[in-house]
């Protein structure tokens, strides 16, 4: 019985915290902007709420548990095959409607990149293809918050924006030495 009470309380925690981020008057104001807008803003997940409350700068004492929870959310592709089809990965990387990686990262031979994120120019040639590099690259794309708490990069796997297999395709696009990403010059020349 006691366990049940704790479970119910634990389930209510994100709701209770979301209520405290927006006060009652603010909640009402947000609801006045339409049901769909209110639904997105008033139902932050527990981790989104932490980033909102701390304005994207998690305090040191909150960081280890945050990172551990993010790491635990990662699901891996079948047989831990981190590198898939680089050509499919390129189509995902360079599609504005899909992963849209180039909007923030420089290095694509197909699209001029932005500089919100670090340059990925010749990523596979710089880092090699060790199992550790493959796993790291996969994990950052699946859940960037497992390494960089509250960063702007989308959590592609966690949020269901890409499947584990699609993420493995993008890993291959970045790492495979035969990939256009590593054989062709980045569009826009060296920055």
């Amino acid at each position: 019985m006691r366990n049940l009470i704790w479970m119910v309380l634990a389930c209510m925690a994100p709701w209770a915290m979301a209520q405290s981020y927006f006060g009652p008057g603010e909640t009402k104001a947000v609801q006045g902007s339409g049901a769909k807008f209110a639904d997105a803003l008033l139902n932050m997940s527990a981790d989104q709420l932490q980033c909102s409350l701390h304005q994207n700068r998690l305090p040191a004492d909150a960081t280890p548990s945050f990172l551990a929870a993010q790491k635990a959310s990662i699901q891996y592709p079948k047989g831990d095959k981190f590198m898939g089809d680089w050509q499919k990965g390129g189509a995902i990387f360079n599609n504005l409607q899909k992963a849209n990686c180039f909007s923030c990262h420089f290095g694509s031979p197909a699209n001029l990149g932005g500089d919100v994120g670090p340059s990925l120019e010749k990523y596979g040639l710089q880092r090699g293809q060790s199992e550790a590099v493959q796993r790291y690259t996969y994990e950052v794309i699946y859940n960037a918050w497992s390494y960089f708490p509250c960063t702007v990069m989308y959590r592609f796997g966690v949020q269901g924006l890409l499947t584990p297999e699609e993420i493995a395709d993008v890993v291959a696009y970045l790492l495979n030495p035969a990939s256009d990403f590593n054989t062709k010059p980045a569009l826009g020349g060296k920055r």
Partner: peptide, 9 residues
């Protein structure tokens, strides 16, 4: 400062 939606923006 509200992080929200499927892209945590």
């Amino acid at each position: 400062y509200t992080r929200a939606g499927p892209r945590d923006m």
